[in-house]
Simulated scan of single mutants.
Amino acid sequence: MVRLDENPPVVGTEDIITELDISHLVIEDDTPLDNFQSELQQRLLVEPLCSSRVLTPPFLAAANVGLFYKLKGDPIVPDMLLSLGVQRAENFSERRHRSYFVWEFGKVPDVCIEIVSNQEGDELILCQKSQQRGKVASKKDIYAQIGVPYYVVFDPLRQIQGEAEMNGALLRVWSISPIGYTELTSPQGVTQIGEVVWLEGIGLGLTLWEGPFEEDISRLWLRWCDRNGRVIPTGAEGQAFERQRAEQEHQRAEQERQRAEQEHQRAEQERQRAEQEHQRAEQERQARERLEAYLRSQGINPDQLP
Results as ranks from 00 to 15, higher is better:
residue 78 P to N: 04
residue 110 D to Y: 05
residue 66 G to Y: 02
residue 184 L to E: 09
residue 179 I to Q: 15
residue 175 S to V: 06
residue 189 G to E: 07
residue 50 C to D: 12
residue 48 P to C: 09
residue 43 R to Q: 13
residue 209 W to D: 01
residue 295 L to S: 07
residue 238 G to I: 00
residue 104 E to F: 03
residue 29 D to W: 03
residue 7 N to S: 06
residue 116 V to Y: 05
residue 256 E to C: 01
residue 138 S to I: 10
residue 193 I to C: 11
residue 61 A to M: 03
residue 73 G to C: 10
residue 77 V to I: 15
residue 241 F to G: 01
residue 264 H to E: 12
residue 15 D to V: 03
residue 109 P to Q: 09
residue 181 Y to F: 15
residue 105 F to I: 03
residue 7 N to C: 05
residue 122 D to Y: 05
residue 276 Q to M: 06
residue 225 C to R: 03
residue 114 E to H: 10
residue 216 D to A: 15
residue 108 V to E: 09
residue 34 D to W: 01
residue 199 L to P: 09
residue 79 D to V: 06
residue 52 S to R: 08
residue 305 L to F: 05
residue 42 Q to I: 14
residue 197 V to K: 10
residue 111 V to F: 09
residue 56 T to H: 09
residue 244 Q to H: 07
residue 169 A to G: 08
residue 210 E to Y: 10
residue 55 L to E: 02
residue 215 E to F: 04
residue 229 G to H: 11
residue 166 M to T: 11
residue 229 G to F: 08
residue 226 D to I: 05
residue 184 L to T: 10
residue 89 A to P: 00
residue 39 E to H: 04
residue 179 I to A: 15
residue 56 T to Y: 01
residue 135 K to W: 11
residue 261 E to M: 10
residue 232 I to D: 01
residue 111 V to Q: 06
residue 284 E to I: 04
residue 292 E to V: 00
residue 176 I to C: 05
residue 172 R to Q: 15
residue 11 V to T: 08
residue 55 L to T: 11
residue 104 E to I: 06
residue 223 R to V: 15
residue 21 D to P: 06
residue 171 L to Y: 11
residue 26 V to L: 09
residue 171 L to K: 11
residue 6 E to C: 03
residue 241 F to L: 13
residue 93 S to R: 13
residue 231 V to N: 01
residue 237 E to V: 06
residue 198 W to D: 09
residue 186 S to R: 14
residue 283 Q to S: 05
residue 256 E to V: 04
residue 206 L to K: 11
residue 45 L to T: 06
residue 37 Q to F: 15
residue 276 Q to N: 05
residue 66 G to W: 00
residue 202 I to R: 10
residue 106 G to V: 07
residue 199 L to Y: 08
residue 222 L to K: 08
residue 185 T to E: 01
residue 274 A to Y: 02
residue 241 F to C: 01
residue 197 V to Q: 01
residue 300 I to N: 01
residue 75 P to T: 08
residue 92 F to H: 07
residue 301 N to E: 14
residue 222 L to W: 06
residue 89 A to V: 00
residue 40 L to R: 14
residue 83 S to C: 15
residue 86 V to T: 14
residue 201 G to K: 12
residue 126 L to R: 06
residue 45 L to A: 06
residue 24 H to L: 11
residue 144 A to M: 07
residue 124 L to D: 02
residue 5 D to S: 10
residue 101 F to D: 02
residue 85 G to A: 08
residue 31 T to V: 14
residue 208 L to W: 09
residue 194 G to Q: 09
residue 190 V to L: 04
residue 17 I to V: 15
residue 29 D to Y: 03
residue 7 N to L: 11
residue 8 P to D: 05
residue 125 I to A: 08
residue 261 E to F: 04
residue 14 E to Q: 07
residue 195 E to P: 00
residue 301 N to T: 02
residue 63 A to V: 00
residue 26 V to Q: 12
residue 304 Q to T: 12
residue 57 P to Q: 10
residue 301 N to R: 07
residue 186 S to I: 02
